[in-house]
Design a binder for these strands. Structure first.
Length: 907
RNA sequence: GCCCAGAUGGCGGAAUUGGUAGACGCGCACGACUCAAACUCGUGUUCCUUUGGAGUGCGGGUUCGAUUCCCGCUCUGGGCACCA
């Protein structure tokens, strides 16, 4: 029987679609399994062969779990808001919605051809009002929440206002950015609306604050920390600078500890968990206040090394620190102002490029050492960050590298307080003789007793900026009454994105939404003009899939109780500090407010590696138009130029006519040798349009079929690893599929032989274990081995072939369905139960042992499986081949490892 | 600089708890079929100075036995980067 993918694939895809065979059922008595892919942003470039890698793996698991009797939720949708569509809109004037839709259509076509078992029921796109209505709703919930440290979770603002109106701020324990001004119940009652909102803003989980943000002038928007890479924007690579701005933010910092603790229970890769731990950046230490000479205020600092308190020789503030202005003496004012000015002009990138040079200025003020009463000069320097800790440090140059560099540069005293040989404290008053560990404890106890400070845990994780000055995002459902932000009511949602005449900021620099003529509420109040960032929608989309068409709530409680956490999440590791952290934050928050039944959304996650391209380079002699074959380039000065890999044949030779046509400005190129072949140099790089090494799955499917594409992507290697794509290798899996179809010629309705069945059960055992551990490359090998073995047998039973079709179907669903229909014809193979493993079939009657002498394998010995160790040893020693290896040596020991090996140790 | 992951033939990769290193596939070589090419099929394919020896990035160690465990390096990929 011949294998014709172009006939069978469209046929079964249409059949599956008509039967809606992949629709998840709810309610259902079956156990559930939720397997999710990170949904794509539909870019204009379409899919290349690297994109579906993870989707194929998750699809195999989804299909396997269906055979295993699970009710599977395996959805797909689109992360449809985003900058590229908007940039394109700015250039062309086309509405981003229309380009986005065109891109989505293309994606769906491409994905459907691969034969994925997606449940498209929701047709979910985050840019649709039906979806973003709930993104806005979640924002309102965040706006209406504060973090109560007493209960350890987020609560509605009403519980805060209740507290304030009865007790004021007395006894209130809340997560806030700074210290809050105490407020009595009567003061609270007397607050104007503006004052009370300003007070509440300090608590709300969605709040506005004047803060230093990453401003990208080219994109005209602010960016989150994880969207800035080396001082450049992640999207587009434009310079990013620091700028103070009034911005919406989310108080993710309230969840720092829980996000850290929650990692423990997650079955995620070690490195992603480490990356998140880093990003959260917990450090333990002490906060304390230093008196300032001639000033009523104290200088608050944070240190992880309170043990070195007696090694302090100066203090350093961030240039932006609020006390700088009042501390600076008249004599130092001009130098300090000059330094502040210089520091603010340096972009983050510049500061990073040169982190060796030391700079700073003396304020003229002095802090007083709490114990020695020594005067400590107060300096400012940009190596102290305003946004971490309290923006001020006590400098201990003897035991901190940066302090040391600073002290050396400005000739400040350096005082050792730890004996380097014995690691104990010296010159440190009451700490003398203690180990570092004990000294940290003792010093904190002492400063706490003196009421100068206390133990403190500090996190690196900052609140997340939640506004973008862009058009193509979710409008923030907030209006301003006399400049005071006020939430829209949930009945007013969705707040639909207005039409605008251009997707650019206004003349006065306001975001594009300010162009909309009617951007006011029903009451006539102005609506917020910034929109939400890209990660807003993706932080909760996994919930919407559970109940995609619900118009009463984002997902019904019963649906969420049933589907629960995502059992398997497949996606790229590049989202470690963005999406994956924000989604966990939303999970914990929604769980606190009792909207979802679990805090952690993704129980088990696997990160697929990148598929790299194998670029082709032709050598061009420098300063000429001469293109050289690889072998001729040696010893000559050449430039390597990318050649589109579609112009290459399987021997890496360039199709010269098409090459000429491909380079319009090089019509007069000269080749050497003149009539070819011109062989290119190959190199593994990232797969990308600009490197002309992109392989489009459509072309692979046209030529080899979707089943071959799926098998090959898996066969390439472990899913987590990055590996280059070489289309040549595809012939291996296509010839496997041909062999499978040829096997059909030999199928008869007979009882299968024991050997035949053993092949089946060995395969089943291997594939089941492989799928559970996502080791899908070895499953493909195992299937190849089984088919090779069966191909050597004269006949194959129909029963074995049917079972094989089921085992194959998660990987190559089209061929499997074709075989199933030919042999059975009852229903789709999709929901047929998996064959049952018979462990007894795995046992052999005989075992062949490798026999080693001093660890070197010399011969094989086949023994009945029932033989015991002594019997095996006797047989080995009695074997005539042993004589030669023993020769005149003494047998010291014979090691028999049952089922495995025999090793004879000779002296 | 710090943290994490990895390194196995010409290539992608395989190897349960330490137990025949190189499964499976590509590529290559030779052969069959063919006027010929492609397809298909068969045989071989880690290296070497081949009755044998060496070999899983490098150098040591533990063990009857190490790709696997331990110690010290090198290189590659990823993350963080003045975080007090």
């Amino acid at each position: 029987m011949e294998y014709r993918p172009s006939d069978i694939e469209p046929k079964w895809q249409a059949h599956w679609r008509e039967q809606s065979i992949y629709a998840a059922k709810f309610p259902s008595d079956k156990p559930k399994y939720y397997v999710l892919d990170m949904f794509p942003y539909p870019s204009g470039a379409g899919l290349h062969v690297g994109h579906p890698l993870g989707y194929i793996a998750s699809d195999i698991v989804a299909r396997y779990k269906r055979h295993k009797g699970f009710n599977v939720l395996h959805p797909m949708g689109f992360d449809a808001f985003g900058l590229p569509a908007e940039q394109y809109a700015i250039q062309t004037g086309q509405h981003p919605a229309s380009t986005t839709e065109a891109n989505i259509d293309r994606y769906i076509k491409q994905l459907n051809r691969i034969g994925f078992s997606f449940d498209w029921a929701g047709d979910m796109r985050t840019c649709e009002p039906d979806y973003y209505r709930w993104t806005q709703w979640i924002f309102l919930e965040l706006f209406d929440s504060w973090y109560n440290l007493s209960s350890g979770k987020a609560e509605p603002i009403s519980s805060l206002t209740d507290h304030l109106s009865t007790q004021g701020s007395e006894g209130l324990k809340a997560h806030v950015t700074d210290h809050i001004q105490p407020c009595s119940a009567s003061q609270w009652a007397a607050f104007s609306p503006k004052e009370s909102e300003a007070y509440l803003q300090q608590f709300r989980l969605a709040y506005r604050s004047e803060s230093t943000v990453n401003w990208c002038p080219k994109l005209g928007t602010v960016l989150a920390n994880d969207e800035v890479v080396n001082g450049l924007s992640e999207r587009g690579g434009f310079p990013v600078m620091q700028k103070p701005m009034l911005q919406w933010s989310l108080r993710i910092s309230a969840y720092a500890q829980r996000l850290l603790d929650g990692l423990e229970g997650l079955d995620w890769s070690h490195s992603i968990k480490e990356t998140q731990r880093h990003w959260i950046g917990r450090s333990e230490g002490a906060s304390m206040g230093f008196d300032i000479e001639g000033h009523p205020q104290q200088l608050a600092i944070f240190t992880t090394r309170p043990d070195t308190l007696f090694g302090v020789s100066f203090m350093v503030l961030a240039p932006e620190h609020s006390l700088v202005k009042s501390l600076t003496t008249a004599a130092e004012r001009s130098a300090v102002d000059a330094y502040i000015d210089q520091a603010s002009k340096r972009s983050e990138r510049e500061r990073m490029m040169d982190n060796k040079s030391v700079s700073g200025a003396f304020t003229g003020a002095y802090a007083i050492h709490p114990f020695t009463k020594e005067k400590l000069p107060i300096w400012i320097s940009d190596y102290v960050l305003a946004s971490y800790g309290s923006g001020a440090i006590m400098a201990v140059p003897a035991h901190d590298e940066r302090d040391h560099a600073f002290a050396s540069f400005f000739k400040l005293p350096i005082r050792q307080v730890i004996d380097p040989d014995r690691s104990i404290m010296v010159e440190s008053d009451f700490l003398n003789g203690l180990t570092v560990e004990d000294a940290i404890k003792a010093s904190i106890d002492r400063i706490a007793k003196d009421q100068r400070g206390d133990r403190k845990v500090q996190y690196r994780l900052r609140d997340a900026v939640f506004g973008r000055q862009r058009y193509w995002g979710e409008p923030i459902p907030v209006v301003y009454r006399d400049g005071v932000p006020e939430a829209l009511s949930t009945e007013e949602l969705p707040l639909v994105l207005p039409a605008v005449d251009a997707y650019l900021p206004t003349e006065s620099g306001e975001p594009p939404l300010a162009r909309a003529s009617d951007w006011t509420s029903a009451e006539g109040l102005p609506i917020e003009t910034s929109t939400m960032p890209g990660w807003a929608a993706s932080s909760w989309y996994f919930l919407r899939y559970m109940d995609p068409n619900n118009d009463k709530t984002f997902a019904a409680k019963e649906a969420m109780d049933y589907w629960g956490q995502v059992d398997l999440y497949v996606g790229g590791s590049e989202h470690a500090t963005g999406h994956l952290l924000y989604a966990r934050f939303f999970g914990h928050f929604l769980n606190d407010r009792q909207h979802i039944p679990f805090p952690e959304p993704f129980k088990h996650m696997v990160n697929q590696g990148m598929i790299q391209g194998i670029s082709g380079f032709v050598h061009r002699e420098e300063g000429s138009n001469i293109y050289l074959s690889k072998a001729l380039a040696k010893g000559r000065k050449t430039q390597k130029i990318h050649v589109d890999i579609s112009l290459l044949d399987k021997h890496d030779a360039i199709d010269l006519d098409r090459f000429r046509a491909w380079l319009p400005d090089h019509a007069d190129v000269v080749f050497e040798p003149a009539n070819g072949p011109i062989i290119v140099e190959r190199e593994v790089e990232k797969m990308s349009k600009s490197k002309y090494n992109v392989v489009n799955p459509d072309h692979i499917i046209d030529e080899h079929g979707a089943d071959a594409l799926r098998l090959f992507e898996m066969f390439l290697g472990p899913i987590q690893q990055s590996k280059p794509w070489d289309t040549k290798g595809l012939s291996g899996v296509t010839s496997f599929l041909r062999k499978v179809m040829r096997l059909m010629d030999r199928v008869e309705d007979i009882e299968g032989s024991k050997d035949e069945q053993r092949v089946l059960h060995v395969l089943m055992d291997k594939v089941e274990r492989d799928i559970e551990s996502l080791s899908l490359n070895t499953s493909v090998s195992a299937m190849m081995i089984a088919v090779n073995q069966w191909s050597e047998m004269p006949k194959l039973s129909k029963a074995s072939m049917k079972d094989f079709a089921i085992i194959l179907s998660p990987f190559a669903p089209h061929v499997a369905e074709e075989i199933w229909q030919l042999l059975d014809g009852s229903e789709s193979i999709t929901l047929v139960p998996y064959p049952k493993l018979n462990k007894a079939m795995l046992v052999n009657d005989e075992i062949t042992y490798p026999v080693q002498f001093n660890g070197k394998t010399r011969f094989m010995l086949t023994v009945a499986a029932s033989a015991d160790k002594a019997a095996i040893e006797a047989m080995v020693m009695a074997d005539e081949r042993s004589v030669k290896y023993v020769a005149d040596k003494t047998v010291r020991k014979v090691i028999v490892v049952s089922q495995r090996i025999v090793n004879v140790v000779l002296s």
